[in-house]
């Protein structure tokens, strides 16, 4: 891909409107989606990690569902839920918010398919923290919020970072649900992945250029995950904070 056309031509391909618009749409929608995923996902993952028994299993299954769902099904589902004629579409229409085929629909699609990657890793990261540490923090005067911010978040931090990197990578590559739910309107809903598909017929060099960019980003993300997980497992082998739950004696 990098050899087919000279590198200079790849770079200059980003001068095209289609590539620049796609880059902007992707950056905006993915930034908002990541804020939603981290903002709602982190407390949700923490809450699920403190549950035990069948409620936890049901919640984890629900969280994991978008992972195994075919993207086309996710697109149909989102359309049925948020589309103009959909279940909630009417409600939003009354409020003057149009969802389908706008940036909001891209954000929803990306959030839907990418959040499980973050949630799964985050739940595991919180559950790996030795349960006596939050207990110790409580006896030392920390309330529930203090325990979360001063103990759980720093100790699960590298796991959360790795999960966020994976979710970001998945969000960048999102294609199926977006094209069904948001369409591929240049400058509005056309993300990099959708632009590759369109430029495939129009200007193959642009498609190549965007693909090359996404390869670089994916490699970077993978590297980040490796570094974070290595750091995490390296430190937990020295410090037993990942010790299993001890039963009270």
């Amino acid at each position: 891909m990098f050899l087919r056309v000279p590198p200079g031509e790849l770079v200059s391909a980003f001068g095209s409107d289609a590539a620049r618009d796609a880059l902007r749409v992707t950056a905006e929608t993915n930034a908002v989606a990541m804020i939603l995923i981290l903002g709602f996902g982190t407390p949700a993952a923490y809450w699920i990690s403190t549950r035990r028994g069948s409620l936890r299993d049901i919640l984890v299954t629900l969280v994991e569902l978008p992972l195994v769902l075919p993207p086309a099904v996710a697109g149909v589902g989102l359309l049925v839920a948020f589309g103009r004629a959909g279940l909630l579409g009417g409600t939003f229409e009354v409020l003057g918010i149009d969802i389908a085929f706008t940036k909001i629909s891209v954000i929803l699609a990306v959030t839907f398919v990418a959040s499980p990657f973050y949630l799964r890793t985050a739940i595991a990261a919180f559950e790996a923290v030795d349960t006596t540490l939050p207990a110790a923090a409580r006896t030392l005067g920390a309330g529930r919020a203090g325990v979360f911010f001063r103990v759980m978040l720093p100790l699960a931090g590298s796991g959360l970072g790795a999960g966020a990197a994976l979710a970001f990578a998945r969000g960048l590559g999102e294609f199926g649900a977006t094209i069904m739910f948001a369409g591929s309107l240049q400058g509005v809903t056309q993300t990099l992945s959708l632009a590759i598909y369109e430029q495939f017929d129009l200007d193959f060099t642009v498609a190549l250029a965007i693909s090359a960019l996404l390869i670089c980003i994916s490699a970077l993300v993978l590297l980040t995950v490796k570094v974070l997980t290595r750091w995490h497992s390296g430190s937990s082998s020295l410090i037993p904070f990942a010790a299993s739950t001890r039963q009270p004696s």
Partner: peptide
């Protein structure tokens, strides 16, 4: 527990691995 004024020494001491010694003592 945070309002009970109890000093609790845990079995394996439950020190915070992300803090240094002074940080652990300063925690509470």
């Amino acid at each position: 527990p945070e309002r009970r004024r109890v000093g609790y020494l845990f079995q394996e001491y439950a020190l915070f691995p992300h803090l240094d010694v002074a940080g652990n003592v300063r925690f509470g």
